[in-house]
Structure formats: C-alpha cells, structure tokens
C-alpha cells in the first residue's frame, strides 16, 4: 500500500517536472514564433465585444466565481484573474473601467489589485476601488449580487470565468435579458451544462484555461496550452495502453 503511494507520488512529481520543463523550453523556443491555435468562436466574439465596449463607452463585467485560492478550485480563479488582467488592459482606452465581481473575499481583493494595476499602467489616475467587488459569500447571494451591475451600470459584455455552480445560470439569464454579450466558463461540470443552455458563448472543460493564450497574454500562456495538448495525448496513450494490457490479461 505504502509502495503504491510512493510510486504514485513519483509519477505525479514526474508529470509536474516534465510539464515545467516543457513549458519553459517551449516558451523560450516559441517566443519569436508564437503557435497558431484552432479558431474558437467564443474568443472571436469576445474580441468583438471588447471592441464594442471601447467604442461605445459602455462597461465590461467580469465575474470570477467562488473559487477560493487555498482550495482545488483556485486554479480556475487564477485563470479568471489572468483574463481579467488582459481584458482590463484591452479596455483601458475606454471611458469606463471594467467591473469585477467575486464570491470569495481573497479573490475580490486580488481583482481590485489587478484592476488598479491595469489602471495605473494605462495612466488612469482616478481608479475606483469599488470596481472589484465581493457580492456575496454563498452561491446564490453571490449570483444575486452580481446581477445589478449588469442591469444598472451600462454593461455591454459579461464574462464569467472561474469556479461557478448552477447559480451561474441566473447571471447569464440576466445578461441575455439585458441584451449584453455573455461568455461563460467554469471548472464545474454542472455549471458547464447550465451555461451551455443559458450563455451566448460557452467554454467547455480546459478551454477555460486556454483563455490567456487566446487573449495574447504572452509566450508562457501559448506554451502552457501546447503542454496541455502534449499531456492530453500522453493521458490518452496511458489509458489506451492500460486498456490493452488489461484486455491481454497482463494487468
């Protein structure tokens, strides 16, 4: 039993080490020649929506979900913060800064820091700390609190990116009723299903973590996407190999 744990630990360490090495090597190799990715209509529409935000002086609303940073859902929260940073930079030429809503207090503080930094980098001196908001600490209070900004603050695009449950449908439904563009993504399976039914564009599965690469956030994002693809093929090979060995009676 302990032997199995050690082997599994070593395998996990090997995967992390291999991924880190590949990511570093690919980001150096491909710094000058960024890879081209398959087209995702959701990101094409997001680019158009961001352009519209800048042109018509409306606002972008980014909802980061409820993923606590010290929980397994922290990765989706970090992916959400990464795209918030990129979108805040892209809309810095607009009249109004984006609004970020969160259902986790630490995430709300980080969203404030992200928006403040984007404002400082673009030379905006009048940063509004209330642009990064904690709207509630339970799933439904968070969703209920994220709805008024969509209705009342001249929002023309809503991006949901992070850890959400089925309560996300309430936010995307209001976005639809307000005729605003909505792009939704979560690491939660039930949330992905309700988002598919209610949001205008949905990112399924690991597409959530590809958002940074599609938003041109840098060579590391692009290389991490390539590493994800390599690891996926590795996982497929291991599963097929395991199935074949099992069928042959070796395992």
């Amino acid at each position: 039993m302990i032997g199995n744990e050690i082997i599994l630990g070593l395998v996990a360490f090997g995967v992390v080490f291999l991924s880190a090495g590949l990511m570093l090597a690919l980001s150096i190799l491909r710094a000058k020649n960024p890879p081209s990715f398959r087209s995702l209509p959701a990101f094409d529409r997001l680019r158009r929506a961001v352009g519209r935000v800048v042109e018509d002086g409306s606002r972008l609303h980014v909802s980061l979900g409820r993923g606590g940073l010290v929980t397994p859902q922290g990765a989706s929260a970090l992916a959400g913060l990464s795209i918030l940073r990129r979108l805040a930079d892209l809309t810095s030429a607009g009249d109004k800064p984006p609004i970020a809503t969160s259902g986790d207090a630490a995430l709300a503080l980080l969203s404030q820091a992200t928006l403040q930094e984007a404002a400082e980098n673009s030379g905006q001196l009048d940063y509004d700390p209330s642009a990064g908001r904690l709207t509630g600490l339970t799933p439904f209070s968070y969703a209920a609190g994220a709805i008024p900004p969509i209705r009342d603050e001249n929002v023309s695009a809503t991006v949901l990116m992070g850890n959400f449950g089925i309560e996300a449908a309430l936010i995307t439904d209001v976005a639809n009723r307000s005729n605003t563009f909505s792009l939704a993504s979560s690491d939660n399976l039930a949330a992905q299903a309700v988002m598919y039914a209610t949001a205008q564009e949905t990112l399924i599965g690991e597409e959530l973590f590809a958002a940074g690469a599609y938003a041109d956030s840098g060579p590391f994002h692009a290389s991490s996407l390539t590493v994800q693809d390599i690891l996926r093929w590795l996982a497929i090979a291991v599963m097929l190999g395991g199935a074949l060995l099992k069928a042959a009676g070796i395992l």
Binding site: S76, A210, H221, S224, Q228
Partner: peptide, 11 residues
Amino acid sequence: VALGALATGLR
C-alpha cells in the same frame, strides 16, 4: 480541467 489547472499553477 486537471491538466489546465496544472498548467495554470505552473504559470
């Protein structure tokens, strides 16, 4: 999702 989380953590 797990592979994406790993890549995000490494970034």
